[in-house]
Design a protein around this nucleic acid. Structure first.
Length: 862
RNA sequence: GCCGGGCUGGCGGAAUUGGUAGACGCGCUCGACUCAAAAUCGAGUUUCGAAAGAAGUGUGGGUUCGAGUCCCUCGCCCGGCACCA
C-alpha cells in the first residue's frame, strides 16, 4: 500500500479492471430481484457540466447500493442526440450536425467513464441512430392508423428575414436572435398527438405514484387542468351565428357586461374586414412571440369590434371586444367577461370604462367592496333575479339546466392540456414518416420502407433546413404504388425520442420489435433521476407515451417510473464589471481572486490578470451567459473522480440546489487522504484476531457508534436519499476511530470492524478508493462491489444510559444522565434536584411537568 | 401574469413525527511541528456580554408547556409556462 493516497494511479487502474471484467453488464435473471436505476440521458452538448456530474453521481450511488443488497441492477446510459444546438454549430462552424454530435458523444463518454459510473455500456443508445429512430417512425404509423395523430394548423414564431420558424428561446425581446427582426405569429400546418384523449388517465395515474414528489404531481395536475363547466353559446346580434365560450363560473352569468375574443378569433377577423382600426390592432398583436409567459405579461389592450352578443338569459346586448390577453389556443378563444368577479376582466373594464356588476356576495353576509378589485370567492347570488340567494353549486345547476332547456349550453369537462405538437421545421431530428401525393393526399410510410433515413452529409445554406434542397430525400413514391410522392420535411420534437428510451434500454439490440419481452423483466424503472425543470413536459410526455405503448401491447405496467428523484441546480457566484450603458461583462470564478476579512467574509474580488476589482454578483445557476461554470474535467484531473463525487454528494441533499465551492472540494480530498492514512496505520500493525468477548466501556461505546452509523447511513441512503448526512455520519465515525489510540488486540479488532464498515458504507459514493482499501483490509481484490451492505448488530446498539434535556418554561437549563429503563417519576425527581434547575425554580410554583420519553423534561412554573 | 419550490452563522448545510437550533464540512483566528513553506496535528469560532445570562432560523402576527418545523400576512430569490433540453 502506498504511503499517500494517489487517485491518479488508483482510478484508471480500477476502471480498467471493471471494463476487463465487464463488471456492470447485466442480463435478465428471473431468479433474482431486479432494480432498474435510470438517470435522464444527456444532450451531447460537448462537455459534461456539473449538473451532469451531480445527476449521474446520485444515480450511481443508488445503483451501487442496490447491487450491494444483492439485486440485479440495470444502469444504462445513452444520448438524447437530436436537437437545436447541433444546427447552430453547423451554421456557425459549417460542420454537419451528425459529425459534431458524434464527436461530442465520444468525448463525453470518456468523461463518464473517467468518473467511474457503473453503466452497462453494451446498451448504449444514441437517438440519432436509424436503428433507434426507425421504431418511433414505426410507432407513429401505428398511431396514425389508430387516429391518435392528426394534422392541424398552429401558431409559430416566424422570422421574416431568415424565413424560418424560431424556437421560443430564439426569440429575445420579441426579435429573432440571429436576424434581429421583429418576430411574427404565423399559422402553419402541424402534426399533433392526441394526449388529451389520455388526460383523465394521466390525471388519475398521479394518485398511484406514491414514489413521486408531491410538487411534481401538483404541477402535472395543474398542467392537465381538469375543470367542469359550461359551454355557452351567445347569439351574435348581426345574425352571424353564435359566439361560443367556456366558463367554470356559470353562477356569475348575470354579471357579464361584455365579451372578449382572441385576435385570431374568426369574429375578430370578420370585423377587421371592414374596420381598419381592428385590422391594425390584430396585426399589432401578431407581432409578439407565441410563448404564454410573454403574452400574459403584456399590458392588457383591446378594441370594441362593433359587434354585439345577446345574453342568453336576459337578452341584453353585450359589446364584443378583441383583447390581446385572450389566447386562441386555450378553450374556444373567447371569454364572457365578468369584471365584478374576475380580476383580469376587472382591470380591463377599469381601463376601458366598461360596466362592473356585482352578482356574488359573501355567504356569511359580510360586506364586500368591489371598488378596488374583483370579488373572486364563491358565495351566494344577488342582483340575479330568480337565482338570488342560491349558493355556487345550486346556481351552477339551475343556470346550466335553464340554458340547456333553451339550447344555449351544455355541461362540459375541459382540460387546460392541449394536444402535443410533435412536428418541428428543423433538419436535425427524426424525419416524420409521411409522404404527400400530388393532390396533397397524405400517406403514412409502410413498415417495410422504414427507417426513413435522415441524410447526414449535408451542406448548410442560410438557416433553414437543408432537406428542403435535397431532391434525393424529397422525391419518392407513395407506398404500395408507382405514384410520385414528396416526403414530409418536418422532424419530430426531440421529446418524442426521450419519451420511450427507458424502454429501449431493456433491449437496445432488438431488430424485430420496438421493445421485446426483455422489457417485461426490467420495466418499470425503479428510480428515475433528473432535473426538476422536467417536472411537467418531459415527464408528462413520457408517461403518456408509455400508455400508448401499453395500449399497443408493448408494455404491461401502467406507469414507467415508480420513483422519481428531482435534483436541484448546480450554482456558483457571479463576477462582473459594468461597462457603458450598464452592459455587464462576466468573469469566470477561476479567473477571480477573493480577499476576505479576519472572519472570512468576502471583502473584495479582483481579476487575477489585472489585479483590479470586479463586482461580486448573486449566486446563480452555472451558465454560459453568466460565465460562472466550473469545468468538472479540471477538478477530476486535479483531485480525482472520487473527490469530485464525494464533494458533489456532500455539499447538499439531491433535491436542493448546490452552491459549488472549490475550497470545499479540497476538504473532501482531505477526508479521503485521512481515511487512507488511518487504514494504512491500522493495517501496519499486523493481523487481526477474532472479536474478543469482553470489551472495555470505551470500546463498547465505539462499537455501538459503528453500528449506529450503519443504521443511520442505511436510512439516509435507502429511505431519505440524503447522501450529505450519510457522509457526515461516516465522517463522525472516522473521527471517532482516529481518536481511538492503542495497539492492543481488543482496540485493533474494534477498529478493524469500524474501518471495514466505513469502507463499505462509502463504497457506492467513492468506489475507487474503497475498492483498494477493502483489499488492504484483507479481502479479495475487486470484491467490494458485491461485498454486501453491512447490517447492524442489535446487541451492539443497546444503551445502558441515556441523556435527557431538562427545560424550565421551555428553555434548556441542563441535561441529566439516567439509566435507560428508569421511570418518569424518578426522572422528574432527578431533574428537580439539579442545582441549575433549582435556581430557575426559585420563588416559583410548578404548574405542570411535560415528560417526553427519551428526549426531555419540561418543568412549567410561574 | 399563472403554476411549483426556497429563505437557518462569514459560507455549504444539519435539526427525519411540534421537543437540546447550528451536526458534518469549508473558511477564519490562535498554537504545535519546520530554517521556511507545504502537508499534518491541537484549541477556538451564531450575536451581544467579563460572567451570569439574554437574543436569534427572510418580515409581521397567531396556536402551543414548547415553533426553523403548524396557521395567517408581507417581502425577496429560483424553476416551469407547451419549438432549449
Amino acid at each position: 500500500m502506498d504511503d499517500r493516497y494517489n487517485p491518479a494511479e488508483i482510478e484508471p487502474r480500477i476502471q480498467k479492471s471493471w471494463r476487463d471484467s465487464q463488471a456492470f453488464a447485466v442480463r435478465e435473471d428471473p431468479a433474482r430481484e431486479k432494480f432498474y436505476c435510470l438517470c435522464m440521458f444527456p444532450y451531447p452538448s460537448g462537455r459534461l457540466h456539473m449538473g451532469h456530474v451531480r445527476n449521474y453521481t446520485i444515480g450511481d450511488v443508488i445503483a451501487r447500493y442496490q447491487r450491494m443488497l444483492g439485486k440485479n441492477v440495470l444502469q444504462p446510459m445513452g444520448w438524447d442526440a437530436f436537437g437545436l444546438p447541433a444546427e447552430n454549430a453547423a451554421i456557425e462552424n459549417n460542420v454537419p450536425p451528425a459529425r459534431w454530435t458524434r464527436s461530442n458523444i465520444d468525448y463525453m463518454r470518456g468523461q463518464l467513464q473517467r468518473l467511474g459510473f457503473g453503466y452497462d455500456w453494451s446498451r448504449e443508445i444514441a437517438t440519432c441512430d436509424p436503428s433507434y429512430y426507425r421504431w418511433e417512425q414505426w410507432f407513429f404509423t401505428q398511431l396514425y392508423a389508430r387516429d391518435l395523430v392528426y394534422r392541424k394548423t398552429a401558431v409559430v414564431n416566424w422570422d421574416p428575414i431568415d424565413q424560418t420558424v424560431l424556437a421560443n428561446e430564439q426569440v429575445i425581446d420579441g426579435r429573432g436572435w440571429r436576424s434581429g427582426a421583429l418576430v411574427e405569429r404565423r399559422e402553419i400546418p402541424q402534426w399533433f398527438v392526441r394526449i388529451t384523449a389520455y388526460a383523465d388517465e394521466l390525471l388519475a395515474g398521479l394518485d398511484q405514484l406514491t414514489g413521486w414528489p408531491e410538487a411534481v404531481k401538483t404541477m402535472q395536475r395543474n398542467w392537465i387542468g381538469r375543470s367542469e363547466g359550461l359551454l355557452v353559446r351567445f347569439a351574435l346580434a348581426d345574425g352571424q351565428g353564435d359566439l361560443e365560450i367556456y366558463t367554470t363560473r356559470p353562477d356569475t352569468l348575470l354579471g357579464v357586461t361584455y365579451m372578449a375574443v382572441a385576435p385570431e378569433h374568426p369574429v375578430a377577423r370578420r370585423a377587421a374586414e371592414h374596420n381598419a382600426d381592428v385590422a391594425t390592432f390584430i396585426s399589432s398583436c401578431a407581432q409578439v412571440a407565441t410563448s404564454e409567459a410573454v403574452l400574459e405579461k403584456l399590458e392588457k389592450r383591446g378594441l370594441p369590434l362593433g359587434v354585439f352578443a345577446r345574453h342568453p338569459l336576459t337578452g341584453d346586448l353585450l359589446p364584443v371586444w378583441v383583447a390581446n390577453f385572450v389566447l386562441m389556443s386555450y378553450g374556444t378563444g373567447a371569454v364572457m367577461s365578468v369584471p365584478g368577479h374576475d380580476q383580469r376582466d376587472y382591470e380591463f373594464a377599469k381601463v376601458y370604462h366598461l360596466p362592473i356588476r356585482q352578482v356574488v356576495f359573501p355567504s356569511d353576509g359580510s360586506p364586500v367592496n368591489i371598488d378596488q378589485e374583483a370579488y373572486t370567492e364563491k358565495g351566494v347570488l344577488g342582483n340575479s333575479g330568480q337565482y338570488d340567494g342560491l349558493s355556487f353549486a345550486a346556481a351552477f345547476d339551475a343556470i346550466a339546466t335553464r340554458l340547456a332547456e333553451v339550447g344555449r349550453a351544455e355541461r362540459q369537462v375541459q382540460y387546460r392540456l392541449r394536444d402535443w405538437l410533435v412536428s418541428r421545421q428543423r433538419y436535425w431530428g427524426c424525419p416524420i414518416p409521411v409522404v404527400y401525393g400530388e393532390d396533397q393526399q397524405l400517406v403514412a410510410e409502410a413498415p417495410e420502407r422504414l427507417p426513413v433515413v435522415l441524410p447526414e452529409d449535408v451542406a448548410w445554406q442560410g438557416v433553414s433546413s437543408p432537406l428542403l434542397g435535397m431532391p434525393e430525400f424529397l422525391n419518392t413514391h407513395i407506398p404500395g404504388t408507382d405514384l410520385p410522392g414528396r416526403r414530409e420535411t418536418d422532424t419530430f420534437d426531440t421529446f418524442f425520442e426521450s419519451s420511450w428510451y427507458y424502454a429501449r434500454f431493456c433491449c437496445p439490440d432488438s431488430n424485430d420489435a420496438m421493445v421485446d419481452a426483455r422489457a417485461r423483466y426490467w420495466m418499470p424503472v425503479d428510480i428515475y433521476i433528473g432535473g426538476i425543470e422536467h417536472a411537467v413536459l418531459h415527464l408528462l410526455y413520457a408517461r403518456f407515451f408509455h400508455k400508448l405503448m401499453r395500449d399497443a401491447g408493448l408494455a404491461v405496467v401502467d406507469e414507467p417510473f415508480t420513483r422519481l428523484l428531482t435534483q436541484g441546480m448546480v450554482c456558483k457566484e457571479t463576477y462582473f464589471r459594468e461597462g457603458e450603458y450598464g452592459k455587464k461583462t462576466y468573469f469566470n470564478p477561476s479567473a477571480v481572486e477573493v480577499e476576505t476579512d479576519e472572519k472570512g467574509r468576502a471583502v473584495v474580488a479582483r481579476l487575477a490578470t489585472d489585479g483590479l476589482p470586479v463586482e461580486i454578483g448573486p449566486v446563480e445557476k452555472m451558465s454560459k451567459s453568466k460565465n460562472n461554470g466550473i469545468d468538472p474535467q479540471t477538478l477530476i484531473e486535479r483531485y480525482g473522480a472520487d473527490t469530485v463525487r464525494l464533494y458533489t454528494m456532500f455539499a447538499a441533499p439531491p433535491e436542493q440546489s448546490l452552491e459549488w465551492s472549490d475550497a470545499a472540494v479540497e476538504g473532501a480530498s482531505r477526508f479521503l487522504r485521512g481515511l487512507w492514512r488511518l487504514v494504512r496505520e491500522h493495517t501496519g500493525g499486523g493481523p487481526i484476531a477474532p472479536r474478543p468477548e469482553i470489551l472495555s466501556g470505551d470500546l463498547q461505546t465505539l462499537r455501538r457508534r459503528v453500528h449506529e452509523t450503519i443504521v443511520k447511513v442505511t436510512d439516509d441512503i435507502a429511505r431519505r436519499y440524503k447522501f450529505n448526512t450519510a457522509i457526515a455520519a461516516v465522517m463522525e465515525l472516522v473521527n471517532a476511530l482516529q481518536r481511538t489510540v492503542g495497539d492492543d488486540e481488543a482496540t485493533r479488532t474494534v477498529r478493524q470492524e469500524g474501518l471495514e464498515t466505513c469502507v463499505l458504507l462509502l463504497s457506492p459514493i467513492v468506489p475507487h478508493v474503497t475498492e483498494v482499501l477493502w483489499e488492504v483490509l484483507g479481502h479479495p481484490a475487486g470484491s467490494v462491489l458485491d461485498a454486501g451492505w453491512p447490517v447492524a448488530d442489535p446487541q451492539a446498539l443497546i444503551r445502558a444510559e441515556i441523556d435527557l434535556v431538562v427545560q424550565v418554561n421551555g428553555k434548556k437549563r441542563t441535561s441529566i444522565r439516567v439509566a435507560a429503563d428508569v421511570d418518569a417519576a424518578a426522572i422528574e425527581a432527578a431533574a428537580r434536584a439539579d442545582p441549575d434547575v433549582c435556581r430557575h425554580l426559585e420563588g416559583k410554583t410548578v404548574r405542570k411537568v411535560v415528560f417526553i420519553p427519551g428526549r426531555l423534561v419540561n418543568i412549567v412554573a410561574t
